[in-house]
Amino acid sequence: MNEQPIIELCGVSKSFGQLRVLRGIDLDINAGQHVSVIGPSGSGKSTLLRLLMTLEKPDAGTVRIDGDYLYHLDNTNGLRPAPPRHTRQVRAKVGMVFQHFNLFPHMSVLRNVSMAPLRVQGLSKQDAQQRAEDLLGMVGLRDKLDSYPHQLSGGQKQRVAIARALAMQPKVMLFDEVTSALDPELVGEVQTVLRELATSTNMTMLIVTHQMRFAQQIADRVVFFDRGVIVEDGQPEVIFSNPRHDRTRRFLQTVLEAT
C-alpha cells in the first residue's frame, strides 16, 4: 500500500445530544474506489457523508481528503482547528448528491448546473455553459436545459443534481440515498447514470443506499454500518453471500426478505 488514500478518517466521532451517531470511525478509501455504504436507518452512514461534505462537524477525530486535513491545519507543533477558508478549499474536491435533490427552484436546469463553475471556479459564461451542456447530455437531459426544476420528474431532477455536482469536477462524489425519494419506476434511470459513472470514469464514489442489489452491483467494496461503528468492510461478493458477522447476516436477511 504505497498509494495515499483519497479519504482517510481517523477516530471520527459525532453525537447529536445523547445520541452517539459515530463512534470512532477509522476508514481509508483509495482513489477510484466505488464504495457502497449500507446499514440500518440511523446507523450513522448518512452522517458520515455529511461530515465529509462539512454539513456536520465531527466532535473528535480527523478527516483527510487527498492528503489534506479537512478540519485541521497541520503545522510543526501538531494539529489545530482550521479556519473556514481552509475547509472550503479542501472540501472543493468533494461533491454530493442529496436524497431530496435540493435543486435551486428559481434557476433553470442550465443555470443550476453552470452556476457554481461560473461563480466559484470563475469559468467564463461560455465555458460554464458548455460544461453544463456536456454533463446534462451525459445524464440524458440535453433537451431540458431551459426547463425549471418543477417541470421535471423526480428522476430527471436527480439526474440534474448529479450533473450539477459533477460540474465542479470533484475527485470524490457522495451519493446520499439518491433514489430513496423517487417513485419506484424512476429509480432505474438514476441508477443507470450512477452505473455509467462508475464504469466509464475512475471517480471515487461513496454510495449510501438501501437498495442491496444495486449496492452489490455498483461497488467494488462494501462497508456495513451499525450503531455508529463499521461492522464489516470487504468485497461485495463476500459481504452479500458470506458475511463474517452475525449482525451483517441478520441485517441482510431482514432487508432481502422485505424486498
Partner: peptide
C-alpha cells in the same frame, strides 16, 4: 446544504 456542496461562499 446544496450551496455548501457546490462550494458557494
Amino acid at each position: 446544504e446544496a450551496a455548501v456542496a457546490l462550494s458557494l461562499t
